[in-house]
Simulated assay, not measured.
Amino acid sequence: MEIKILTSLARGQAGILHHITANLVSFEYTRGAPHKPHTLVFVGGLGDGLGSVEYLSDIVRALDSTEWTVFNLILSSSYGGWGMGRLGTDIDEIAQTVEYIREYKEPHYGVGKVVIMGHSTGSQDVMHYINCPNPRPAHPIFDKCWEPILRTPVDGAIMQAPVSDREGILWVVKCGTARDSPAAMRELYNKAVEDAKRDTYEDNESVDTIVPLSVTGRIGYPPTAPVSSRRFLSLVSPDSPEKPSEDDLFSSDLSDARLKETFGMVGTRGLLNQKLLVMYSGRDQSVPPWVNKEGLLKRWQKAINADGRDFWDHRSMVIPNASHALSDPDQAEPRRILVERVTSYLNDIQKA
């Protein structure tokens, strides 16, 4: 039987709904004290939306007595929109939110700090924000009428549960499911990749095709969420590790050269004013058992600190026994560690 934890967010929270643009909104948890200069912008993972990540309630409570408020950003790719989304659009929307927050808060509360925090695939958004060219490269199909958006630097960045979607899917394929044997799963996966590569777009190469729900539902994705062939190929990245896709940022088999192009570009882009905090879950259900979590963090630290730079926060760690979203009934201690590290990090960001 599934046990649901009733969080304070589930019982209701005071706050302000901000219209960043006509179609982009963010909810600021104020708990009766909105007049705070500093901001933590929270971005959820695949399928997440407002208040769906339970540990966010712990962070909101921990920041009550501080000068920080939390903005829970609702991207166009939130909830069921992730299957049609892409990292480029996500970071454009994060950039618009960061700019909005600075313009909204500074005249009233003074110059404040802005930190972005991502959970799961939200971590891919965080990394993409601080490491890719500014403005980002245009997509040849979907950005024909796009106006480039310059991203402003953020004072800090946090990644929680930065897992590899590709390795998670490959683990499902390797083990099989209650319905499909490993052999059947491999055949299903290979055909899905082949079909997605062959027919990625339609209508004169201008419109996404959709991977059949009967396929995506059997390999681990929600059976109600449409996934485009383009996003599917980005998430499963079938040509990795030699030619990783945009979404393949955190796989354990990526080369040092690839990490130099991602983590290693953070210092060069100048979009992170201070340091990156990484909180990896020690018992993450999405991570295959062959992944050396501690070793992976050390490789990321080496890549981001190349050439004598220092962008790796010393509080980064693998949280013992932590599940992917720290939502299981036995997660009180992992959540305590997460909140303690995040609040300590934000305190140092504020002082810097």
Rank of each mutant, 00 (worst) to 15 (best):
T7K: 08
A10Q: 10
A10D: 15
L17D: 04
A22Y: 09
N23E: 15
L24T: 12
S26E: 11
T30F: 10
H35I: 11
L40R: 07
L46P: 00
G47K: 04
D48N: 06
D48Q: 03
D48M: 01
S52V: 13
V53Q: 01
Y55K: 06
D58M: 05
V60M: 02
T66F: 05
W68I: 09
T69S: 11
V70Q: 11
L73Q: 08
I74S: 14
M84P: 01
M84T: 03
R86Q: 08
L87P: 10
G88V: 10
T89Y: 06
I91F: 06
A95K: 07
V98W: 07
E99T: 15
Y100S: 11
R102G: 12
R102T: 14
E103P: 00
V111R: 14
K113F: 03
H119W: 07
Q124N: 13
Y129E: 07
I130R: 06
C132A: 09
P137L: 06
P137S: 04
P137R: 09
P140F: 04
I141A: 03
C145G: 10
C145M: 14
T152E: 06
D155R: 00
D155L: 02
I158L: 00
Q160W: 00
P162F: 06
P162V: 07
P162Y: 07
D165M: 11
I169H: 04
W171D: 15
V173D: 04
G176Q: 02
T177N: 08
E187S: 10
N190V: 08
N190C: 12
R198I: 07
T200I: 10
T200M: 14
Y201H: 00
E202V: 01
N204A: 11
N204D: 11
N204R: 05
V207C: 02
D208W: 08
T209P: 00
G217M: 12
Y221T: 02
P223N: 14
P223W: 10
P223K: 11
A225R: 05
P226E: 07
V227Q: 06
V227E: 04
R230V: 04
R231E: 06
L235V: 04
L235I: 10
V236S: 01
S237G: 05
P238D: 01
S240T: 01
S251R: 07
S251C: 07
D253F: 08
L254C: 05
R258K: 11
R258Y: 15
F263M: 12
V266Q: 03
T268H: 10
G270A: 00
L276W: 00
L277S: 01
S286L: 15
V287T: 12
P289Q: 06
W290N: 08
E294N: 12
E294V: 11
G295R: 02
L296Q: 03
L297F: 05
W300H: 05
D307C: 07
H314D: 15
R315A: 15
N321V: 09
H324W: 13
S327Q: 14
D328K: 14
P329R: 12
Q331G: 08
Q331L: 12
A332C: 02
P334L: 05
R335F: 12
I337L: 04
S344I: 07
S344W: 10
K351Q: 14
